[in-house]
Amino acid sequence: MDRPGFTASLVAGGVAGVSVDLILFPLDTIKTRLQSPQGFNKAGGFHGIYAGVPSAAIGSFPNAAAFFITYDYVKWFLHTDSSSHLMPVKHMLAASAGEVVACLIRVPSEVVKQRAQVSASSRTFQIFSNILYQEGIPGLYRGYKSTVLREIPFSLVQFPLWESLKALWSWRQDHVVESWQSAVCGAFAGGFAAVVTTPLDVAKTRIMLAKAGSSTAGGNVLSALHGVWRTQGLPGLFAGVFPRMAAISLGGFIFLGAYDQTHSMLLELGRESP
């Protein structure tokens, strides 16, 4: 990938990430509290829905930038012909690689953010300091495996669907989709992927919020899912599905639309500059 393409992916990904995380933060807080072990009201209810926003603000740009740099690089590296039936496989591989890299930044930010969301009286920096003091660096990466196991299936659904919908729309109108059309495709793809992967999101939330030293804190996704199933059944596995679907549908619209718009604009500027 050439330098203009690398820079465009980095900046466009970062702008898209910050936009979606800050705009949709209240919905994310509500979803986290619905999934928390103590229940929605004890976790804070509708009070302090911006608790943890500093963590999200700090982590958003580098997290999204890392994803799209990796995603676009792997797509470029694999350079499959656009008419090939292997295109969805290429998008799946690129999205999976992007998630593995991005989660190195996302998980510490997510751990701090989610603990702040269910403990609105505590400051974000205080929570960050407590994690480092009590659990060290591994505490910041608690739930890394469960996050990756949630994000990869999510991306395996969302990104090939997004790319396929854009390709279909382009074919129907006989020209490349515009940014708002890409955003609509992103909303549909994100919402569908969100519903399918909600149980994995519940498991990830339980692992990140579990008390240090508990069996759930060990990070076993199947064990966490079994625990939720045993105590709350199917409704527990899909706790928070509606705010999650709403947030990710809106997020897909903003995130992928903003990415396409910014990426196209930066590439155009790159072509115009000497």
Rank of each mutant, 00 (worst) to 15 (best):
V176D: 13
L93D: 04
I137A: 12
L256V: 06
Q38A: 14
W76S: 15
R244V: 09
L168P: 01
P54C: 09
W180Q: 04
G219S: 11
F67K: 04
F253P: 04
G213N: 08
E163S: 12
G240S: 02
G14K: 00
E151W: 07
S55F: 03
S9W: 09
K204G: 01
G270R: 10
A183N: 06
M245C: 14
G219V: 07
L140T: 09
A194W: 00
G219F: 03
G139P: 06
A246L: 15
Q173W: 07
T80D: 10
R244P: 01
L234Q: 12
T198K: 04
F242V: 13
A167M: 04
Y71N: 05
T198P: 07
G257I: 02
A16D: 01
F154N: 12
D174W: 02
S60Q: 06
A189C: 08
R115D: 02
H263R: 11
K204W: 02
W76A: 11
D72S: 13
V18F: 08
D174T: 06
W162R: 10
F242N: 08
A203C: 06
Q35G: 09
L27D: 09
T70E: 02
H263L: 08
A8K: 00
A102C: 10
V18G: 03
L10M: 14
P160F: 04
V184W: 03
D174A: 10
M1W: 11
F67R: 03
M92L: 10
G139K: 05
G48Y: 05
A66T: 13
R230L: 13
H263I: 02
V118H: 04
M265W: 13
G270Q: 13
H226Q: 15
L256I: 11
A64P: 00
F61L: 09
I105F: 12
Q38S: 15
Q158Y: 10
V176P: 02
G252R: 00
V15N: 02
N63M: 12
F154Q: 10
A167C: 03
S214I: 08
L149M: 14
N63Y: 10
P138K: 04
S9A: 15
L27N: 11
T124A: 01
S223T: 10
P199Y: 05
H263K: 11
A64L: 03
L24K: 02
Y73P: 01
T262E: 01
Q134K: 14
G44Y: 08
Y259W: 07
A16M: 09
V89W: 06
V202D: 00
A203K: 03
D2G: 15
N63V: 03
H47W: 09
A212R: 12
S55A: 15
S36A: 15
K90D: 14
Q126H: 14
M1A: 09
W171H: 14
G257C: 05
S60V: 04
I127Q: 04
A246V: 13
L250E: 06
Q117W: 07
A120I: 13
A203G: 08
I30E: 11
I127F: 10
L104E: 01
L24T: 15
L27K: 07
T80F: 14
L156G: 02
T205I: 08
R123M: 11
R172P: 00
Q117V: 09
